[in-house]
Design a binder for these strands. Structure first.
Length: 463
RNA sequence: GGCGGGGUAGCAAAGUGGUAAUGCACUGGUCUGCAAAACCGGUAUGCGCGGGUUCAAUUCCCGCCCCCGCCUCCA
């Protein structure tokens, strides 16, 4: 079945069918690599990953492009602060980002272009826009997009002219020297003339030395790798305006194509009921959470456990809940037995979960359906064939959601004194010396071990 | 003020014009010397507030309140 996804532009759910009939091509606005990404950033990237996985599990190949913003005000400023070249600085944070992505089980994009390595593409695009009368140069050697030259401006964000202040000129109250020469407040920079504080970070262009504006890079790279028309463009909700609005304007004006045909936006993550911010001390990175003992899989589970279009409230309690939920899934998988394992993945008894997922990427609904199936399936009563189908369906869904089950507790070396203590306790128990047995159990507990009794044997496991 | 997303059990979170999935937590039972583990159950007379439509609304309509985001380079 085809995935149906809500489209920000038309404001309705629409079935996704590839424009070229074969491959679903989509672009995601990637990170600015100037510091560690936080879990809010990853909510978006994880949602996009589930999107891609759902398409692919449904039999539709994808072409996934996600950029790296490695030149902008922040990367330049912070690289200088760090006393590094821009390239060294952004490489460091790019590697950090990739490590987090791998840990969170995100499929790497098929193409991951960086802004710095696509300057000529951006320059060419600006030239076209200037030639066509959609952009103008200013005295300092900057180039701006003329918003009033694009009639559809504002369609994505539904902002009216008066909100955009389209007609407003930059006359009296311009405080930012950077912007003093714009014709209209709504116009945005395509090319920013070189300034002293840019240091060594400038490139040649027909308008003089400088660097590209932020909005342009995504358009240029999308055009390069996906063409004038492609299926889906995605990012966080905060990018709708102005970033995506500007992308549409400059892309459509430069190519006369339609640019993205479908817009997929992910709502922000909240923490403790409010927004995440450094000043509130509630901004977490994956590393922060790992230091507190949570696994990336648990973080991923939390991030997908809310509907992508609704706010999701992140709490530590939800991480604990994720741990238990993953354990429950793992126990079910294990209970099906080794004989159930097989290579063909099909939804099988998890069809309802799969259908739910395809209905606008309803992950929480899909998870609910999965547990529903699990709760009514008694592994012990299944035939081998039924168990195989259950195993297949479970793993089909896990793959679509990108969830890796926690590994079974590895065989840990049990210290001799623990074995001795456990044995002593077992003997005390057999002798019905309950006080002694309880003392031994308490000592084991203090040492971090737990006894699991069964009929006529016991197990010691690490807490 | 404009635009958008939300307000469902202790927490998190689906869903529906006919009487509320799921996970966690809590709790009863089986088992156990007692626990743990496992398994079987239970837990929202109610879905922000007030009206309206309807045989029936949490679900549709109207009004209102509250939270979050964006409103010119924040996922």
């Amino acid at each position: 079945m085809a995935l149906t996804l809500h489209d920000t532009l038309t404001r309705e759910p629409r079935a996704l069918t590839p424009l070229d009939g074969k491959t679903l091509r989509f672009y995601c606005c990637g990170p600015t690599v100037y510091g560690p990404a936080h879990i809010g950033n990853f909510r978006t990237f994880v949602a996009q990953d589930v999107f891609r996985r759902t398409l692919e599990m449904g039999g539709l190949p994808t072409l996934h492009v996600r950029n790296l913003t490695d030149v902008d005000d922040k990367t330049i400023r912070d690289s200088q602060k760090a006393g590094q070249t821009l390239a060294d600085f952004t490489r460091y944070w790019t590697e950090k980002f990739h490590a987090d992505c791998t840990a969170l089980n995100l499929l790497p994009p098929h193409v991951e272009p960086s802004a710095v390595t696509h300057i000529p593409h951006q320059v060419r695009m600006i030239e076209t826009l200037v030639q066509r009368g959609h952009a103008y140069t200013t005295g300092d050697g900057s180039v701006y997009f003329k918003v009033s030259s694009f009639g559809d401006y504002g369609r994505l964000s539904h902002l009216e002219d008066r909100e955009l202040r389209l007609g407003a000129t930059v006359a009296s109250n311009a405080t930012d020297s950077d912007e003093y020469s714009k014709d209209s407040l709504a116009d945005f920079a395509l090319w920013k003339a070189r300034k002293p504080e840019d240091g060594e970070n400038f490139w040649p262009s027909p308008w003089g030395e400088g660097r590209p504006g932020w909005h342009l890079e995504c358009s240029a790279m999308a055009l390069e790798y996906l063409g004038e028309d492609f299926d889906v463009h995605s990012g966080g909700v905060d990018l709708i305006f102005p970033h995506h609005e500007n992308e549409i304007a400059q892309s459509c004006c430069a190519t006369h194509g339609k640019f993205a045909h479908h817009w997929f936006h992910v709502t922000h993550l909240m923490v403790d009921g409010g927004k995440m911010s450094k000043s509130l001390g509630n901004l977490y990175t994956l590393e922060d959470l790992q230091k507190r003992g949570y696994s990336p899989a648990e973080v991923r589970y939390v991030l997908i456990s809310g509907y992508y279009s609704a706010p999701l409230n992140f709490t530590f309690h939800s991480l604990d809940a994720a741990r238990q939920a993953l354990q429950k899934l793992a126990k079910f998988a294990k209970a099906l037995g080794d004989a159930a394992k097989n290579d063909t993945l099909t939804p099988g008894p998890f069809q309802e979960a799969w259908d739910t997922l395809n209905n606008d990427l309803n992950v929480p609904g899909a998870l609910g359906a999965m547990f529903g199936t699990i709760n009514k399936t008694k592994p012990a009563t299944l035939t081998v064939d039924e168990a195989q189908q259950a195993w297949s369906g479970l793993h089909f869904m896990l793959k679509a959601l990108g969830l890796n089950l926690p590994a079974e507790a590895e065989e840990v070396e049990i210290p001799a004194e623990i074995i001795a203590l456990a044995e002593a306790r077992w003997q005390a128990k057999l002798a019905k010396d309950w006080p002694a047995a309880d003392v031994a159990r308490k000592e084991l507990d203090a040492a971090g071990w737990v006894i699991k009794d069964s009929k006529d044997s016991y197990q010691v496991v690490k807490k």
